[in-house]
């Protein structure tokens, strides 16, 4: 079942087109990664999905309802952590967590206490005195303490320390285990790699790739270092082979991951002595798209 989707979503600010017709679809129970360089339009897309901004063209839907018109209905089942967490400076973290969870109605006190403990948050401090990470913790605790069907998290870990990031990942995995859906925008690729089932890459307001990490990997190249008994004379003419470099210890090249099989077959015909095959990292994938 599709939990959230956008269809040719366009958002303009004056003349500037921040989203140029994006299509997204989140399936029930998946953790969906949303990645892209700064200013690509991630937060804008999320805000349209939340009905905070109105789509200029196209549609945005959550739970099959219109994100703008039925915002209130939708929000009863959504928990949100904004990219910039701003909190009332003169309220304490505890007061704000209580406020948000009460406004969302569905939440439990035990869950609240548990999360506060896990995130190691001092709830008696005024928000003015919180560090960035602590403000984020307040938002995360109030989001995860609510029982929602969809969690929308906009760069939720940008200020957390590694230990707290670990706690965050556990929380995501817990809600996922309960069959909840998560939309996670992030710059931390390791986090995305570990948590997300599917990923969309957005750049300058356009979705340039969508798929599982496996599928995305196929779009990139694998690096190979090989030593063979017989010289690889026709290597350059093989389909999908790039950047050949011959050195004393062997030949190095990269190959389109989807043509890996036939390349290995070709190498096999020349008697492989040593073979080193490095799968593409998500980093490389991004580098290619971000540039």
């Amino acid at each position: 079942m599709i939990i959230a989707s956008t269809d040719n979503l366009i958002k303009r600010f004056g003349k500037f087109e921040a989203l140029k017709g994006i299509n997204l679809a989140l399936h029930e129970g998946e953790v969906f990664g949303f990645i892209g360089p700064n200013g690509a339009g991630k937060s804008t897309a999320i805000r349209v999905l939340l009905g905070i901004l109105q789509a200029s063209e196209g549609t945005a839907q959550i739970f099959g309802k219109d994100a703008w018109k039925d915002a209130v209905e939708i929000h009863k089942r959504v928990a949100y952590v904004p990219g910039d967490v701003s909190l009332w400076p003169n309220l304490t973290g505890g007061e704000i967590i209580d406020l948000f969870t009460r406004l969302r109605k569905k939440s439990g006190q035990t869950r609240r206490a548990q999360l506060i403990k896990q995130f190691d948050l001092d709830t008696s401090k005024k928000c003015r005195t919180y560090s960035k990470g602590n403000r984020q913790k307040v938002a995360l605790v109030s989001a995860f303490a609510s029982e929602a069907d969809l969690y929308i998290l906009d760069e939720p870990t940008s200020g957390l320390d590694p230990l707290m990031e670990q706690v965050f990942r556990q929380c995501v995995q817990e809600v996922k285990a309960q069959g909840k859906t998560v939309l996670l925008s992030s710059h931390i690729l390791q986090e995305v790699e570990q948590l997300c089932d599917r990923v969309s890459i957005i750049r300058q307001g356009e979705i340039i790739e969508t798929g599982t990490l496996q599928e995305l990997r196929h779009l990139t190249r694998t690096s190979i270092t090989v030593q063979t008994e017989r010289p690889l004379e026709e290597l350059g003419t093989q389909a999908g082979v790039h950047d050949i470099l011959t050195e004393a210890e062997g030949t190095m090249f990269s190959v389109d991951t989807k043509l890996l099989g036939q390349t290995i077959e070709y190498l096999g015909q020349h008697g492989i002595v040593a073979l080193e095959c490095t799968p593409p990292t998500l980093e490389q994938l991004f580098m290619r798209h971000y540039e």
């Binding site: 904004p82 701003s86 406004l103 929308i152």
Partner: peptide
């Protein structure tokens, strides 16, 4: 302006 309303609004409070 301070960015507080966004969070209130995301809890299902109508405008």
């Amino acid at each position: 302006k301070q960015g507080y309303t966004e969070q209130i609004y995301s809890t299902g409070i109508s405008r």
